[in-house]
Design a protein around this nucleic acid. Structure first.
Length: 884
RNA sequence: GGAAGUAUAGCUCAGCUGGUUAGAGCAUUCGCUUGACGUGCGAAAGGUCCAGAGUUCGAAUCUCUUUACUUCCACCA
């Protein structure tokens, strides 16, 4: 039995993929080896959260990375794709807290140690799920180097960086207004805030003067913060308030005297032009308070309840307190009016709770000194953003950067290595846990209870995963990494922070290129989300269509940085393509001799179509390679797709069939050779995109093959260029297409074959045509072909095909509707007239001829000549038919 | 308030540094058991490349303006 005959008619991805993947992994192909005879090529994975489940975003991200790393591996680089996961402090902690709640426990009740024990157990049990899922995408990660942000080594890196920054005074602890999530019960950094325009109210409240001389009306969106007011500010330039500056007001409900102060911060045109000042609960008020040396009165606890400073409101939840305070003000007649007011409210990115900004004592990274080198790294081109426009967003953020709040009131994460001395108050920050205070020597030390922002550790990922702070061989060989592939949504969270961290710690960029991709949205263009329930599980798609199909659909027709929609039809089309190449292979193998000896092929026996496709495939190699180098993955893929389907399957295979079916054909072996050669080349070009089918096919083609993934990437052969053969086949294809067209238009049944007479004035075209009788017979329902140089013997009602330098006549007798044919020819004639007019006008244009590049002008001339040739024969034919 | 992106066939989208009779997939219409594939083959229909101006010999492509949608940043109580 021939090899191809054992192949199923339909490619079944599910059977093949798992086995193929296991084989790759077992053979160790994914391993990145230090090999000084090769150049390294490194990608570190954007570590997914251990709480995460595979979604389309991962699928896209992984696919892009895998394409690049497989391409580079085949090109001969020592490729390393380093995988791992992120501990995701808030998200994971929330999971554990939820689990505890189900048992009626709280984290405080079980204590820190027990809590962490449970968290690690959870991580062990579920943290690997995402990793398993990544494998089903075909990711060729070096799993032997898998890292976790809380691994011992990575934790050491975190501590090292913290200490270094502290020693350089780039980390400090300070009391500032920080955004706080009362639900997650922790501080968060500025970029973790999500603003949304919410409907709210503007409450106008009357503050009576202490001397009884009337009252001043202020407007606020947060009346409950009134409890913490320490002043009311007006603009010093504001005429209407000039004479009340310095007077005292009675703070309603609290019955405390507060002053009217003057500060330029107040906009006299907004609200009433008078602003209540609550330094503990508003960043601007805090600044005003500092300028005027006002007290800071915090009136809310961490959970969002009014504290003891709130008098009778103490213990009330913030929204409840707001309601009550408004009620009470109304009762006192101090509520002047309530206006509906839309304003931007900050929400917690994770739980969407309304955030509460208030003063607290937190750890910060001083960003200004770190931002400079990080900006330079991109501006100088050491790091390239693809697409470039993201650099602007990056600069804009970096140039206006605020200090980064890195402490979190959580337990799951890297604990801040700061130790407070009970006797002298000194803070000891060190690489190892200190036994005594470095200042006074006291042993009464307590460690800061807080942990670090998750992103603090991910910021070190490109080097911490390679062994830093040790000077490992891996670090020396694989660092800096080459490409970072990620979504534009984490440019600030992660990309920017990796850049400044690497510049500071390594004195070297973390990666040379950042390839940004967009979001995968649903078919209606909405973001996929849990709450909408519109998410598509990549694993379901893989089950239904195969990994290759999913990967193909995510890459094709997509350009860097742009969002895309998930459409099942696209995956289906990709699945069909996998089936197509599978069947092309089946065809090739069925038509091979038992064991073709390609050592015996004679290039002299290559036919025109052989040279045509060898030449075209050679060009394909260079184009696809170039596109991949430029990260134009979608373009590269569609080029291979078009070539395989339209050129190789639809034309080459069809043209070459007679040679294969004729056992005695003298160039049969050459046909088999070219079929095989071009197919393998295409499979290699396709392998990074569709690793599984291409491997399955490769194994079919070569029984003793190792693996396509470690095969050599095709190279462009400069000697393999046959423009003459390419032009000849293109001409023949044109002829076939036009014959098919006319036959279909005339409703000629395929059983009705026609003998074609080619009238050819151009000897070179005559040569081409004389050689293509078989092709016309097989592809254009032709019974036979005669080539002659005049029109003798041509039936006046024959259908005709006008080509450059030739006319093909097909006597189809009664099947031809002469009127219709005249109509068709007339339409064609008119179209040609338009084209000729267009091109002639162009060539008559002095400016065009003198200024356009020579090859463009030449191209237009050739075009004109071609159109004229076809036009003449069209006119001639019309005349014949009309004179009939 | 700043900034960015998008606008091309009924739908989803390609079209790089200006030169194509403006492309693909899906959908539509018509025809096909042609010895790999109906997850296929063949043929067709379908577009003022959002609108307007400019640069140029030449613009879907570059510049400006307008409109619509999307996103990011900042944020006035």
């Amino acid at each position: 039995m021939k090899k191809g005959e054992s192949m199923a008619k339909v490619y079944e991805p599910c059977n093949a993929e798992k086995q193929i993947y296991e084989n790759w992994e077992r053979k160790g192909y994914f391993k990145g080896e230090i090999d000084h005879s090769k150049k390294p090529f490194t990608i570190v994975i954007p570590p997914p959260n251990i709480t995460g489940q595979l979604h389309m975003g991962h699928a896209l991200d992984e696919t892009l990375q895998d394409i690049i790393i497989r391409f580079k591996r085949m090109q001969g680089y020592s490729a390393l794709w380093l995988p791992g996961t992120d501990h995701a402090s808030i998200a994971t902690e929330a999971k554990i807290v939820d689990a505890l709640a189900k048992e009626g426990l709280t984290k405080e009740s079980i204590g820190r140690e027990e809590f962490l024990k449970r968290a690690w157990a959870w991580k062990k049990q579920y943290g690997n799920r995402i990793v398993t899922q990544l494998r089903s995408l075909g990711s060729s990660c070096d799993w032997s180097r898998e890292r976790f942000t809380m691994d011992e080594g990575l934790s050491r890196a975190v501590r090292e960086v913290f200490v270094r920054l502290y020693e350089k005074e780039l980390i400090y602890k300070g009391e500032r207004i920080t955004n706080w999530c009362p639900c997650c019960n922790t501080s968060i950094s500025d970029i973790e805030i999500e603003y949304s325009e919410d409907d709210g109210f503007f409450w106008h409240i009357s503050y009576p003067f202490a001397d009884g001389s009337g009252a001043l009306t202020i407007a606020t969106t947060r009346p409950e913060t009134l409890l913490g007011d320490v002043a009311v500010a007006v603009n010093p330039e504001d005429e209407k308030y000039r004479n009340i500056i310095g007077k005292m007001l009675i703070l309603p409900l609290v019955n405390k005297e507060i002053p009217v102060i003057a500060d330029g911060y107040v906009d006299p045109t907004f609200g009433t032009g008078a602003v209540k000042i609550t330094p503990a609960h508003d960043p601007n008020d805090y600044e005003v308070g500092k300028r005027h040396d006002l007290p800071v009165v915090r009136i809310m606890d961490d959970r969002g309840y009014i504290n003891e400073n709130g008098g009778k409101y103490a213990g009330m939840e913030r929204s409840e307190a707001r309601k009550q305070i408004v009620e009470d003000l109304k009762a006192l007649g101090l509520l002047v009016k309530i206006e509906p007011h839309k304003h931007n409210v900050g929400h917690c990115q994770r739980c969407h709770t309304v955030l509460e900004p208030f003063v607290s004592n937190q750890w910060y990274v001083r960003m200004k000194p770190l931002a400079g080198p990080a900006i330079d790294a991109v501006r100088s081109g050491k790091i390239k953003f693809v697409p470039e426009r993201f650099a602007k967003i990056y600069y804009n953020w970096m140039e206006n950067i605020q200090d980064w709040c890195i402490s979190r009131q959580l337990w799951w994460g890297h604990r801040i290595p700061a130790f407070y001395c009970a006797s002298c108050g000194h803070i000891t920050v060190s690489r190892t846990d200190p036994e005594k205070c470095e200042c006074c020597g006291s042993t009464e030390l307590t460690q800061d209870p807080d942990t670090l922002d998750t992103w603090f550790s991910s910021a070190l990922w490109p080097f911490s995963t390679l062994g830093w702070p040790d000077e490992t061989e891996d670090l020396k060989y694989f660092y800096p990494t080459d490409v970072l592939v990620t979504g534009y949504d984490i440019i600030f969270f992660w990309v920017a922070r990796m850049i400044f961290s690497a510049c500071e710690q390594m004195g070297e960029v973390p990666f040379r290129t950042v390839l940004f991709h967009g979001l995968v949205r649903d078919s209606q263009g909405r973001k996929m989300s849990k709450s909408l329930g519109n998410g598509i599980d990549p694993l379901d798609v893989i089950d239904k269509f195969g990994t290759d199909a999913l990967r193909f659909s995510l890459v094709t027709g997509n350009s860097p940085g742009n969002d895309q929609r998930y459409l099942e039809e696209k995956v289906e089309a990709a699945r069909n393509f996998a089936n197509k190449i599978w069947n092309a292979t089946r065809f090739v193998l069925i038509n091979f001799d038992e064991d073709p000896d390609f050592g015996k092929i004679d290039p002299a026996r290559f036919t025109t179509e052989d040279r045509w496709i060898l030449s075209a495939s050679n060009r394909l190699v260079s184009e696809v390679t170039e596109n991949l180098e430029k990260f134009e993955l979608g373009v590269a893929l569609s080029k291979v797709y078009d070539f395989v389907w339209d050129v190789y399957c639809d034309w080459y295979i069809e043209i070459v069939k007679p040679r294969l079916f004729d056992a005695g054909n003298e160039s049969r072996l050459e046909a088999q050779y070219v079929l095989n050669e071009v197919l393998v080349k295409c499979m290699k070009l396709l392998h990074p995109f569709m690793p599984f089918v291409t491997e399955a096919i490769y194994q079919k083609l070569y029984a003793d093959a190792e693996s396509i993934m470690i095969s050599k990437w095709p190279e462009c052969d400069a000697g393999c260029s046959y423009p003459g053969e390419e032009a000849a086949i293109d001409y023949m294809i044109e002829a076939v297409k036009r014959i098919r067209n006319i036959r279909h238009e005339m409703n000629v049944p395929s059983s009705k074959k026609a003998h074609i007479t080619a009238v050819c004035s151009d000897p070179s075209k005559a040569t081409i045509l004389s050689s293509c009788e078989t092709m016309l017979k097989n592809l254009a329902y032709c019974a036979g072909l005669t080539v002659q140089n005049d029109r003798t013997g041509i039936a006046s009602d024959a259908a005709s095909v006008q080509l450059e330098g030739a006319v093909l006549y097909m006597p189809l007798e009664e099947l031809i509707d002469v009127e219709k044919e005249i109509q068709r020819l007339t339409a064609e004639k008119e179209n040609l007239e338009k084209e000729i007019a267009r091109v002639s006008a162009k060539l008559a244009n002095e400016g065009f001829v003198s200024k356009a590049p020579a090859n463009v002008v030449e191209g237009e001339r050739a075009k004109l000549e071609k159109y004229r040739s076809i036009y003449e024969s069209t006119v001639q034919r019309l005349r014949d038919m009309n004179e009939r």
